[in-house]
């Protein structure tokens, strides 16, 4: 590992945590939480501040509020991005964080990391227009443009490793049990 590389990721802390949590799996159990409130029409706000981890309640430095709505072509007021676009936010930010962490760990200095994410979506599914069409994305494509002190192969390996360790990539590519209840 190179000490001269500065990507702003404290990889040592992450590696230390990995060692500690190997012997303490209960502390590794996190619960991420969001609270949502309907505003009007298809507009809602979702608030995130607290989560659970390392055996206790944790708090973000500040509360974040996210508006979700639908654009005018959906006959809505467009007070925020559509919910499915939040998946793109999650995927891009997760993979980018992974690229930075892996680069730091491999001693690769990054100069810029940019990506575009495209989710192909046939909206006949959510409209109930064709029962053979699924509601979610048909496929998602992420394209990274990375400027770094590394060969093309090393950069490709960064991106591949970041997918391998990505929470959101896993959540999107593998099924997850989801329970929705009325309290």
């Amino acid at each position: 590992m190179s000490t001269t590389v500065v990507n702003g990721v404290n990889v040592q802390a992450l590696l230390d945590a990995r060692e500690v949590l190997k012997g303490a799996p209960e502390a590794a159990q996190f619960v991420w939480r969001a609270s949502s409130k309907w505003q009007k029409g298809v507009h809602s706000t979702t608030t995130i501040q607290n989560f659970f981890g390392l055996g206790e309640e944790q708090t973000h430095k500040s509360e974040s509020v996210f508006d979700a709505d639908h654009p005018a072509v959906f006959a809505a007021e467009d007070n925020g991005i559509t919910p499915i676009e939040y998946l793109l936010v999650g995927l891009a930010s997760c993979l980018t964080a992974g690229v930075a962490s892996v680069a730091q760990n491999r001693g690769i200095q990054l100069r810029s990391v940019e990506s575009t994410v495209e989710g192909n979506h046939d909206i006949r599914g959510i409209l109930g227009a064709d029962s053979d069409v699924r509601n979610g994305f048909n496929d998602v494509k992420v394209t990274f443009t990375i400027d770094a002190d590394a060969s093309k192969e090393d950069i490709e390996a960064l991106v591949a490793q970041s997918q391998k360790r990505s929470a959101v990539f896993d959540a999107l590519t593998n099924p997850t049990n989801v329970t929705v209840e009325v309290a």
Binding site: D139, E153, E156, A157, A160, Q161, Q163, K164, F169, D170, L172, T173, N174, P175
Partner: peptide, 26 residues
């Protein structure tokens, strides 16, 4: 892709096949 679950008699595979291939090629 990797067999991720079997739900109601249907096998569900991971959508991450492309990356599994990329990792092996690299």
């Amino acid at each position: 892709g990797r067999l991720a679950a079997i739900r109601d008699g249907t096998a569900l595979f991971s959508g991450g096949l492309r990356n599994v291939f990329a990792l092996a090629d690299l």
